[in-house]
């Protein structure tokens, strides 16, 4: 199992230091710089952090509704996991139709309100934002499942006690819900965080190679240039993910 995962990683590192003729070189990494490596890294980080925050917020919102008893609870809880069954590619296509600059449904909506359509990809932040939205749509359910499990694990009595102590709904959320959810939020962020960093299909379909993120860059290098160059890009991803993992373990150790 480990060999299966680590051998290829080692191989990628190895490949990244050689030319396609098999000579040792650092040129692959130098060459990466021509492909706007720094910008790409920045984009990736913005996307990862933004998407995680968005999902977490949405999941907290949905969960705090779903822990309550109300009519239609079952319906909402059913609907809220539907996106889990929708493949990433499908989600990507759907959102690409919604946010098309000409012929997109988001612009139709703006049109109804008498506004003119927007070029949804006119700068990189907006483009990344659209990827975040699409990704959050697809992945909020899994986050919600974990957060909701956490919310159910908090004894109701705590809330009653806090209410009797005079804490309002917001104070209760801040002082009871959030601290007790810590572990679950951590698990959710770990599970989602790294896959968020490796996000690939969604940006590929929604925004193509520009603005580029690390995965799409590696893929475009793989399909257009040499394996060695692509490996170099892959190694950059590996480095970042390793840092993330190390952080996770460190935080995990503290718990």
């Amino acid at each position: 199992m480990l060999a299966f995962a680590f051998y290829p990683s080692a191989r990628a590192v190895y490949l990244s230091f050689f030319t396609s003729q098999g000579k040792f070189t650092l040129d692959n990494y130098k060459e990466l710089l021509y492909f706007n490596l720094y910008g790409t890294i920045e984009n990736t980080v913005i996307l990862t952090v933004g998407a995680l925050m968005l999902q977490l917020l949405l999941a907290l919102g949905v969960s705090s509704i779903l822990v309550r008893e109300f009519r239609g609870k079952r319906v909402l809880s059913t609907i809220s996991i539907i996106p889990m069954g929708v493949a990433t590619v499908v989600a990507a296509i759907t959102f690409s139709f919604i946010f098309q600059t000409s012929g997109g449904y988001a612009n139709t909506l703006l049109h109804y309100f008498g506004l003119s359509g927007i070029n949804w990809y006119f700068n990189r932040y907006l483009s990344l934002f659209i990827v975040m939205i699409a990704d959050s749509w697809k992945n909020t359910p899994i986050m919600t499942l974990i957060i909701l499990a956490g919310m159910y694990s908090i004894p109701r009595d705590l809330y009653y006690a806090a209410a009797l102590d005079g804490a309002g709904p917001i104070k209760r959320f801040v002082h009871i819900t959030l601290p007790n959810l810590k572990k679950f939020i951590a698990i959710a962020l770990i599970i989602r965080g790294v896959s968020e960093f490796n996000i690939f299909a969604l940006p590929l379909i929604l925004i193509g190679y520009s603005p580029s993120i690390l995965t799409t860059l590696a893929y475009s290098l793989y399909s257009t240039t040499t394996e060695n160059l692509a490996s170099a890009a892959a190694v950059v991803i590996l480095v970042f993910v390793s840092v993330l993992i190390a952080l996770n373990i460190k935080l995990g150790g503290k718990r």
């Binding site: 995962a5 680590f6 290829p8 990683s9 191989r11 793989y222 692509a230 190694v235």
Partner: peptide
Amino acid sequence: LITNMVPGLVVAIP
């Protein structure tokens, strides 16, 4: 879980 987190692209290319 570390294995689980190794990026797909890193593994797939080699």
